[in-house]
Design a protein around this nucleic acid. Sequence first.
RNA 1: GGGCCUAUAGUUUAGCGGUUAUAACGUCUCGCUUACACCGAGAAGGUCACCGGUUCGAAUCCGGUUGGGCCCACCA
Length: 820
Amino acid sequence: MTKKATAAKQVGARTHCIPPMPSMTPGKLAEKAWTKEMEQQIYDSWKQNKIYSFDPKTKKKIYSIDTPPPYVNTPIHIGHATTYSLMDMFARYKRMMGYEVLFPLGLDRNGLPIEMAAEKKSGKKFTMYSREEFLELCKKVLEESSAETTDSFLRLGISFNSFEQGSGVGDVYLTDSPFYRALTQATFINMWKKGLIYEAERTNNYCPGCRTTIADSEIDYKDENSLFTDVTWKIAGSSETIVIGTTRPEFLCSCEMVIYNPEDARYKHLEGKHAIVPLYGKEVPIKAHPFAQMDKGTGLVMMCAFGDYTDIRFFRDEKLTPRISIGLDGRMNDHAGAYKGLKVKEARAKVLEDLKTAGLIVAQRQITHHTPICERSKDTIEFIGMSEFYVKQMDHKDRMRELAQKLKWYAPESKQILMDWIDSVSIDWPISRRRYYATEVPLWHCKKCREPVLPSPGKYYQPWREKCPIATCPTCSGRDFEGETRVFDTWFDSSISPLYILKWGSDTAFFTKAKPCTLRPQGKEIIRTWLYYTLLKCYHLTGECIFSDTWINYHVLDEKGVKMSKSLGNVIDPHVILEKYGAEPFRLWCAVEGNITTTDLRCSFERIEGAGKTIHKLWNVAKFVAAFPEVKGKVELLETDKWIITELDTIIHAARDGYERYDFHNPSLLLRNFLWETFASHYLELVKARAYNTEGKFRLAEQNGALHTLNYALDVILRLWSPVMPMLTSRIYTELRGKDIHSEKMVEVHGKHTTTLVGSEIAELNSTIWKAKKDKGLSLKATIKELSLPEKFKTIEKDLTAAHGVEKIEWTKEFGIKIA
RNA sequence: GGGCCUAUAGUUUAGCGGUUAUAACGUCUCGCUUACACCGAGAAGGUCACCGGUUCGAAUCCGGUUGGGCCCACCA
C-alpha cells in the first residue's frame, strides 16, 4: 500500500463517535523490553527503502529545512546530535501533517578548519606545500572523516531525504563539490554584475607568520607584558614640549596626527599647531578628538597606521592616508627609514634605544595588555592594508532590519541578537582570503589593462590553474590573462545553502514553487555570521527574505553547566551514548531535558539513562494492550473510558499546539506525565479487571469498551510521540497495526466526549484506597467490605468495585472505608 | 568595559500576577499485586540567587547586585 492510501484510510476511519478499533492478534511484542539492538534493523531499512526521499514533483505543500552543514574534520559532537535530533522531530511532525519535507544533509568541507586538520595531521604549515599538494592533503583528510559523520546521523534515526551524495533535491551535498562551488561562484558573478561587489584596499588582520589575511574569528587573545614608554615630542615653531605614552614606538614613522580630548584644558592651546615626530622630524597636526581619554597616559595619543582597531576607524573617519610600515614579510618597510628590514620586535627595541640615546624618554613602566595573536602561529596580529573584495552591506542595513522583523523567530527573544548585530555593522563585508582549500574567486585579470574579466556563471572555475575562458579583454582587447589566486571566506559559501537546496539558478521552476525556505535552524552564536550573511546575500540575489521561520538553539553543556572541552576532559561523545543506550533514550532526553531555544542544556549519562525508563514503560503498556484479543461485536464505552478520552484530547491539543511552535519539550513532558501518572497508574488499573473480565462481571460490550479505549489511547500516545522516538514507536505500531507509523497522519482531537470526572480526584481516590490497604498490611487484592464514596464517583461504580475488590459501595457525602 | 539571554528541591525542569510552588532523576522506607523490580505504594527534600520597589497580593512585573552563557569591544 502506498503511503498516501494508508494515511487517507486512517483519517477517514476516525470520524465516528467511537474511535476505531484496530485489529490485532495476541502474542505481539514478545520481547521483554525494548533494547538498543533493535534500532539497527529499523534505521537500515529506512535507509535501504529510501522512505524519506523527497519528491520534487509533489503536489503537497513543501516544507524545507536548511540544515546547518557540520564540519567534517571532527566527528559530530553532542550539540550536533541534540539539535539534529530536534530538527528531525520537526521534519517527522511536518510529514505527518501532510507536507512534502525537504530535509537534506549537507557537509561543510571548505575553509580553515579543514586546513588546520590537514596541517595538524602532517605537522607542516600550508605555506610549506605547493597549492596542488596542499589541496590533495586536505582531500585525504576529508575522505577519512565524512563517512563517519553520515553514519552517526543515520544511527540517531535522523530522517534525511537521502544518505547518498548527489546533486538532486534532497541529496547529501558537500560545500566543496563542483556543483556547490559553481553555485557559490555564480552568486559572485551575479552580484558583481549588479554592482554589489567591489574591490578595495583596506586594512585587514594580517598574520606575518602565516603570511595571510585572517578573519576575526581566527584571532586569539593573549595577555602580554609590554613596555609603556613616555616620549618627549617638540612643538613646531615653539620651544614647548609634550609627552606622549606608547607601547608601539616602532610606529612613530606611521604617525599622522596627535590628539587630545576636546574637554582636556591642558592641551586646548595646542589646537591647530603641529607636533614633530621624534627621530623622524616629520610634522603632524594636533587636534581635539573624543577617542583620546583624559585619564589614560598623559591624555595625548599618537595616531598611527595601525596599532589597533581604533586607529583603523580613526584613519577612516578623519580621511587620513595610512602609511603602513610593516610589510607582508613581517618586517619594517621603506616608511620606517633606518629601521627598514628589521622584524617588528627588533625595530621596537632599536627605536627605544635611539630614543634613549637622544634623551627623549621621560619614563617607562611594564604593563600587561590583551594582545591579538594568530590562533595558529601565535604571532602578533598586525593591521596591514591589502586589496580585497567586499560585498555591500552598509547601504542595506534598513532592509536587513525589515527582513529580521519579517522572520518568525523561535524563540522570539533571539531576534534581538540579530538586530544588535545589524546596528553594529560598520564596514562592508570582506569576502576574499589568501588561502587554498576554499572556493576560488572566479575571475581573471587582463595583463594589459589590469581590468577584471569574469566568466559566465554555471561552471566551477579554478583561475589559478586554468586558462581564462574569455578570449579577449572586453576593455582593451588584450589577450593575456592572469588567474586570480584568492579564495572566498567560508561564510560566502555557507550563506547560500537555502539557494542550493532549493535549486536556485539550476531549476527555476522548482525554486519558484519551493521558496521561501521554511526553516533555518542554527546556533545563536552564528546569528551574526551564518543567518545574517544568508539573509543579506539571498536578498541581494533574489530581492526577498529567504526564510519564513528561524529556530535558534543554545548549547549543550556538561552536567555542571560548563562548556565541554577536550582540555577539561568533560566531553560527552554521542558515539558513547549510542553504544551505551542507543538513540531512543537520547532522543527522548533531547525533548524532555529542557527548552534549548531559551537556555543551555546540561547533559549527563545518568539523565539520559533515566529518560530510558519511559521507553520501558511505554513498551510494557503496549505489551499489555497487545495481549488482549481482537475486539469483536458491540463496543460500549463506560464513563472511565470517556474520561481518559477527554484527558487525551487535552494532551493532543497541547502537543499539536506546541509542535507548531517547534516546542517538543513541553508536549513531551506532558506525554510522559500522562503515560505514567494518568494512563498507567489510574486508567489502566481501573479497567484492568474489565479488560480481563475473568469473572464475567461485565457485559461483552463493556469489556470491548475497555479494550477499544486502551488501543485508542496507545495509538494516540504512539503517534504523538513518533517524531520524538521514531524507532520505538515504529516497531510497536508496525507489530500492532501492521502499518508504518511515520506514514500516518498526526492525531486529531477526538472531541466527542465530555465527563464530570476529574483526573486528580480519581488519582486521589485510588491512592487513598491503596494506602488504606497498605496501612492494614493487606495485599492490594484484599477485599473491601464496605466503601462510602461521594456521589460524583457513582458513574464509575462498576470499574471501582472490580478494580479494588469492593463488596458494597454506599453513596454519601463523606469518604469512608471499611476493610474486612 | 558594552549588549543580549539566564538563575526555581542534591541534579534537571514546569509555572511567567492570586489559595499550603510542578514533575522527573537521585535519596530513604515498605512491597515480587498475572504490562512493567528499567516496577508499585509511600516519605524526606525548596526563606523560587541576593537587595530594593510596584501591588490588596510577586517565583511571576520593574530597578540594582552577584554567578553562568553567547556576542561585541577595549588594549594609546
